[in-house]
Amino acid sequence: MKLPIFFKNRMTEFSLSVIFVIGFLALVLTSNGVFLSRASLQGFLTYLAVPIAIGLAQMVVLCIGQMNLAVGTMGGVSCAIMAVLMADHNLPIWLAIFIGLFSATAMGAINGALVVLTQLNGFIITLGTYTILLGFQYRLVKTFTIDKYPSSLPEFGKRNILGFPYILVVAIITAILLSLFFSRTIIGRRVLATGGNPLAARLSGVSNNRSIFIAHTLSGLLIGVASVITIASLPGINRSIGGDWLLASFAAPIIGGVLMSGGTIAIYGTVIAAGVVRLVDIARAQYSLDPSIVSLSVGVVTLSTVALSEWRRRRTERQNEGMKELI
């Protein structure tokens, strides 16, 4: 089979695209076209933006072979900061957004700095910061829902261009910029090199500590983007924001073809996998399935994709083994 050039070395992404198209068509057909109505399509696309952004935020940390367990509370805290600043302190929207992005980036930078300073794995560090930030989030929001801020932000969230919600466009542009970062900038390449093989990277003059710091900081920035999207797409902010981000943040990149061992990125894969997960969500609403079905199927898909990619990797390695076995 001859694949379009884009999909060369991207079997996972190709399969996902096919699954997405089939799933999409199935939903259209079984709903007698209702899925294509403006409202339901809008709903589908609007709530795709956050999974894409948090998937990418997890992906940049996975690409150095680490994890960020604090995605949810980092997002929750930065949403809370923005909401509180606008509602209680009457800060202009642009300034609140800037501070929201900045604070998320700073949280990422702190994660990165702690990993570098302690030389512990990001898993442990972010498990710690996750809990600390959860405390912050609860203190900031308490048990209220904060919604007394200018309505122009939620309105922005509802607007769209050619049927595409602005916030989805923001997520897609972020993905494209991220893709350029990894393929076309020195820093991006070095981060990937660290993830691909830290020993070889070090010998090649790459500072692994710097790469680790940058990956976590970038993860923070992307969570900031996800937070801005969240605040724009919801009527108000409460303490549950970010609570369901963790699994989603892993599901998109891992289904999308990112390896846990580091060194790979799959931006298109992450985006399209987020789309597939959204389709499952829609299907649940469509057929009034039990919510557990979604968790179940996302879990099964995640596990089987990982197993499949691992199997494929081992097969390639085995095939090369004979060739390399010289004395």
């Binding site: 390449r189 090199a193 093989n197 070889a200 010998l203």
Partner: peptide
């Protein structure tokens, strides 16, 4: 320094040849 452990330290095995060569000269 060309390392003796080429697989462990000399190469990015999952990367294309192009990126393996360019890693020292990105600037």
């Amino acid at each position: 320094y060309v390392t003796e452990n080429r697989k462990e330290e000399g190469l990015f095995l999952d990367f294309p040849v192009r990126k393996n060569i360019s890693v020292t000269i990105l600037a």
